[in-house]
Amino acid sequence: MSVDAPARDLVRVRGLTIRYGDTAALSDVSLSIREHEIFGIIGPAGSGKTSFLRALNRMDEFTPAMTVDGAVEFDGKNVRDWRNAYALRSRIGVVFPLPVGLPMTIYDNVALSPRLRGIRRRSELDEIVERCLTRAALWDEVKDRLDSLGSLLSGGQQQRLTIARALSQEPQLLLLDEFSIAVDPVTTMRIEDVLKELKQEVTIVLVTNLVQQARRLADRTAFFLMGEFVELAETEQLFTGEVADPRTRDYVEGRFG
């Protein structure tokens, strides 16, 4: 992709409102996420950041109390119109705050998604596993013990395993929800470097509770506050005080939240 080609919108959200039972967790969000950008979302706990991510790949269907109104378009098509929700989800990788190493070997963790897609040949799987683990900055640490259990790795390693697993889906969109909560600072830095490179290939939505992390990584950043979508701007603008709403400045400067 050449640098100055007009960026296409990969995700378009119109009038998104999310409720749990009768309580709104997020009201009337309209925004677009461009292809190949890192889209940051910041805001204090309980602002609806996770709920927003869940609406993007129809994760609300796993939570009976959760209802989603408004339109979410992925790749030009309303996610509700994907008759095959599995196809939609397989194109969107998700990484949760707490790493979930599946109770199988490291190899099988990363090979799971390719296998679900029907890839059987060992050489092909080997190649995918090595590529994804390398890109998640984990390969060197685990290449000699691919057959040991993924759930026995340390927290930081499991989080990178989760990222490798998400990458093995060859996703168009990667949703990262406060990935660094269970990860030490050094590993966080390594993952951040990985994300900067990944941007060439996939679009990333980065929900973070560390405003400085958004500043380091995100091209544009949205600010959510207690269920309200306050504003969206180029990340540098937010951090240099060119904000539309004074609450944004207060938050990024650490005056509340």
Binding site: G93, V100, L102, L116
Partner: peptide, 18 residues
Amino acid sequence: FREACWNMGATRWQTIRR
């Protein structure tokens, strides 16, 4: 574990089976 699988696009049956 189930949610992690579903989020990869696995069907219920694939999740149960794997």
